[in-house]
Design a protein around this nucleic acid. Structure first.
Length: 155
DNA sequence: GCCAACGTTGGC
DNA sequence: GCCAACGTTGGC
């Protein structure tokens, strides 16, 4: 089984890569995704051992800032069951959950963040979903070539 | 803070 | 099933 590559967005004011690094076991559950397309990715496609680019949105700079690893595959997002949680969704039931999440573990922080600007200017990355018009998905796939190019740019 | 580009909701 | 209204995302 070959490894797949992904990108997740997070607002660093809410949860940054440093927050992930400081989390217990450098691991967090990636909760709060409430979009069906992203849900399908989390539930069905992302596998243990896959690598994930960590992107800071609504930030300065806008950039991919590091890499994390999937340590637990899709399982029900329990924050949807908690009325006190910001991500509460009464339509999601414990016996037939609507929303899913994965666990991510910190792997590395780039010496040099790969900015959105640099990605837009790189012809090898012109097909990245991140820069396609109107893309607001918080979880998306990345090709191996794109992943490798991002790693090169970060050195 | 603005607003384009979505996705979702709900009346009909 | 259509579509207007509304809410959210996220770059600028």
């Amino acid at each position: 089984m070959s490894k797949n590559y992904w990108l997740v967005k997070s607002e660093p004011d809410v949860f940054s890569i440093d927050d992930l690094n400081k989390s217990p076991k450098q691991t967090t559950y990636w909760d709060g995704v409430r979009n069906y397309q992203a849900r399908n990715t989390l539930r069905d496609e992302i596998k243990k051992g896959d690598l994930v680019l960590f992107y800071h949105s609504n930030a300065d700079p806008l950039a991919i800032v590091g890499v994390c690893e999937v340590v637990k595959e899709g399982y029900p997002d329990f924050t949807a069951f908690d009325p006190d949680n910001n991500h509460y969704d009464p339509k999601s039931k414990a016996d037939s959950p609507t929303w899913f999440m994965v666990d991510l573990k910190y792997q590395s922080k780039f010496k040099k963040p790969v900015t959105l600007e640099a990605i837009k200017q790189n012809p090898k990355l012109k097909n990245m979903k991140l820069i396609q018009r109107g893309n607001r998905l918080s979880v998306m796939s990345v090709s191996k070539d794109e992943f490798d190019e991002i790693i090169n740019l970060s050195k």
